[in-house]
């Protein structure tokens, strides 16, 4: 006979597994449909999962809205570009790079990890200052950080290429590569959420005073979550760059910031599953509407939405979801295997 508490814990442990399987299913479904645009859409969605899960590690656990995470994507993308672009290409496009980086010719995987690593380091340094603030002041400070990174990247021409897109990134990100990163992000996010630090952070989110009274140092736990979340946003940025093949500071600014926020909120900020479901729901909705805009043939008649209507319909749908499910699609719940499943094979699971 297993105790209720142990069953709950095992059920919680199944969440990342179920989510990963869900993503695997999504990739298989997309690939079996056969057209290349669908495979692209699957890869893009999974990159967004990496991004948004990373974003959720901080926002979901701490309850602080961050506007700054797109900047980590920007940093990750450019670090990966600096390390992997052919040296002769860098000499023409980015003449201001320091010698070591200009000569670097890294493999794409360590470069993506380095992208995440540098983003995490920047998060650690800036977070040390910003996270001393609470609530909306912290949010605004992260926004100011985003605007600073964007201004610097758009104008530091010899190193970042300025407003001109950096092109020539190796396009290696297939749906499988993106799936690997997305699963890694989900696993780490689940581990962090279940760790003492994750629990402490959520406790502080629910009741700041009580948590402080119980000896929780909110600042330290926030900083850890911020750094961890920046790592995956940085890697996500690197993936995005190597997915499109072209990077520009503008691609990591307000558009991405709000896309991430919208996905987390639509899915439900209260749970990891919410973050993943939010990405899937919005991405699939966008793809469906885009296809409707192209036109669907029924017999001899073609129905098509007017160009540009996708954005309007999606925005209206988002508002409706927020009105009828203000806590998001998942409303704070996690997907997990039912209790009788995990109780039955308890010995094998843990």
């Amino acid at each position: 006979m297993t105790s209720q508490h142990r069953i709950r814990r095992r059920m919680t442990a199944t969440t990342p597994v179920v989510l990963s399987l869900l993503l695997l299913l999504f990739v298989l479904a997309a690939l079996s449909l056969g057209d290349r645009a669908m495979a692209r859409m699957a890869a893009e969605t999974l990159i967004r999962v990496t991004f948004v899960v990373g974003f959720w590690v901080f926002v979901g656990n701490s309850g602080v809205v961050s506007f700054g995470h797109a900047a980590f994507g920007c940093i990750g993308a450019y670090v990966s570009a600096w390390l992997t672009l052919r040296p002769e290409m860098k000499a023409t496009l980015l003449p201001g790079l320091p010698e070591v980086i200009a000569a670097a010719d890294w493999h794409v995987l360590p470069a993506a990890v380095a992208g995440g690593g540098v983003a995490a380091l920047v998060a650690l340094l800036t977070g040390a200052a910003i996270l001393r603030l609470s609530g909306i002041a912290a949010s605004i400070a992260t926004f100011a950080f985003l605007a600073m990174v964007n201004t610097i990247w758009a104008n530091w021409t010899s190193v970042t290429g300025g407003t001109s897109s950096v092109v020539g990134l190796e396009r290696y990100v297939t749906p499988w590569v993106a799936l690997g990163w997305a699963v890694a992000a989900i696993l780490v996010a689940a581990l962090h959420a279940a760790s003492a630090s994750g629990l402490a952070l959520r406790a502080a989110r629910e009741d700041e005073v009580a948590a402080a009274a119980s000896g929780i140092d909110r600042y330290r736990h926030r900083l850890l979550a911020y750094t961890l979340s920046a790592f995956f946003c940085g890697s996500g940025g690197a993936l995005m760059g190597h997915f499109i093949g072209v990077i520009n500071p503008d691609g990591f600014y307000l558009g991405l910031t709000f896309l991430m926020l919208a996905m987390v909120v639509i899915g439900g900020v209260g749970s990891l599953s919410g973050a993943v479901v939010g990405v899937l729901a919005l991405s699939i909705a966008v793809e469906g509407l885009v296809r409707l805009e192209k036109g669907i043939s029924v017999g001899a008649v073609t129905f098509a939405l007017p160009p540009g209507s996708q954005e309007i319909i999606l925005a209206v749908a988002m508002i409706l979801i927020l009105i009828f499910r203000p806590a998001g699609l998942m409303a704070g719940r996690e997907v997990m295997l039912p209790a009788r499943w995990v109780a039955g094979r308890a010995s094998r699971e843990t």
Binding site: A37, R40, E44, F243, I244, N248, G251, V290, E293
Partner: peptide, 20 residues
């Protein structure tokens, strides 16, 4: 034709689309 929707990621998809 395919629509890039004034978006970089969609631009790559539009390229594949016209290829297909």
């Amino acid at each position: 034709e395919a629509d890039t929707r004034t978006d970089r990621a969609e631009s790559a998809k539009a390229g594949l689309d016209v290829l297909d």
